[in-house]
């Protein structure tokens, strides 16, 4: 059959193009524009080339924020993934309590980020907060507003409280999909509880766990609202993560050029990590299908 050539078809793509342009391409290009220019307002731009990028790559401030960010993501992943799996393994598999626990687990995920921040900000206050006050009553010197370690602990516990459910629910879904015959065979083979986890449950959860790790990594790497509400990045710079630093730089100091360069590098890092994950996952899928 002859292929019909109809250039009018391009018009059908137009709405999408317009929407994507306004939602993604134009803002991104604006950032690119800022990153290679210096501006003093009034829409006056002076070409500076890659100067901002050089400055950012060598900036100690950015290195510190990146270090804190990596440490934060590593800690919460190291807590949330095993804890989420542990919770999923112990959740009731069906029946009334199964549904109740499922709903309870989903609750933290439904709370808006700034509300989570506010809850923990008040919860941890030594003067009126339930947590802070109780700890003080026990004679524990806890104060997230002037002790960096306390601030870190608060931010991490808050993130674990907020997001472990996500890992648990994904792992739970993975566990539910394992056919009963596997557990029966394991009993016949006299496998220990650990062997069942190691050789049946973990391999079968692999796919969902990778997704959970990817989601938790991306989210934690971009975290802004909750720590900002609780600690504002302090005390000092101790909980200033990448996005908090970025906002300080762009909106606080109005250093649009460096901030734009920073954003682009930030974006590329996340893109790179996501790509690595994607490659790993598709490879696993292909292996599975073989």
């Amino acid at each position: 059959m002859e292929k019909t050539v109809n250039q009018k078809a391009w018009f059908l793509v137009l709405p999408v193009l317009v929407i994507v342009a306004f939602s993604a391409i134009v803002p991104l290009m604006t950032v690119v524009n800022y990153s290679v220019n210096d501006t003093f307002g009034n829409n006056q731009f002076f070409w500076v080339g890659l100067e901002w990028f050089e400055e950012m790559v060598t900036s100690e401030r950015l290195h510190d924020a990146l270090g804190r960010q990596i440490l934060f993501s590593a800690i919460i992943l190291a807590i949330e993934v095993p804890l989420g799996i542990f919770i999923a393994l112990n959740m009731p598999k069906k029946g009334f309590w199964g549904s109740v626990v499922l709903v309870l687990m989903a609750l933290p995920l439904l709370i808006p980020f700034n509300v989570v921040g506010t809850i923990w900000q008040i919860f941890g206050r030594v003067d009126i907060g339930l947590l802070g006050h109780t700890l003080a009553a026990f004679g524990i010197d806890y104060n997230y507003t002037n002790d960096p370690l306390d601030a870190w602990i608060t931010v991490i516990v808050m993130d674990v409280w907020h997001w472990t459910s996500l890992v648990a629910l994904l792992a739970y879904a993975g566990l539910q999909s394992i056919p009963q015959a596997y557990y029966q065979a394991a009993r016949i083979d006299q496998a220990t509880r650990w062997a069942i986890f190691r050789y049946i449950e973990l391999p079968k959860m692999q796919g969902v766990l990778l997704i959970a790790i990817l989601l938790r990594f991306m989210d934690s790497f971009m975290i802004y609202t909750e720590p900002f509400v609780v600690t504002g990045g302090g005390p000092g710079n101790s909980t200033t993560f990448l996005s908090i630093d970025l906002v300080k730089m762009a909106v606080g100091q109005f250093d649009l050029g460096p901030a734009a360069a920073f954003s682009i590098m930030y974006f590329l890092v996340i893109l790179l990590v996501s790509w690595v994950f994607y490659t790993v996952m598709t490879n696993l899928d292909r292996e599975e299908a073989r």
């Binding site: 015959a181 596997y182 029966q184 065979a185 016949i188 050789y199």
Partner: peptide, 13 residues
């Protein structure tokens, strides 16, 4: 006792 099931059960890893 040994038992073999209708659908294959192998330890993938």
């Amino acid at each position: 006792i040994a038992q073999v099931f209708q659908f294959p059960v192998v330890y993938d890893t």
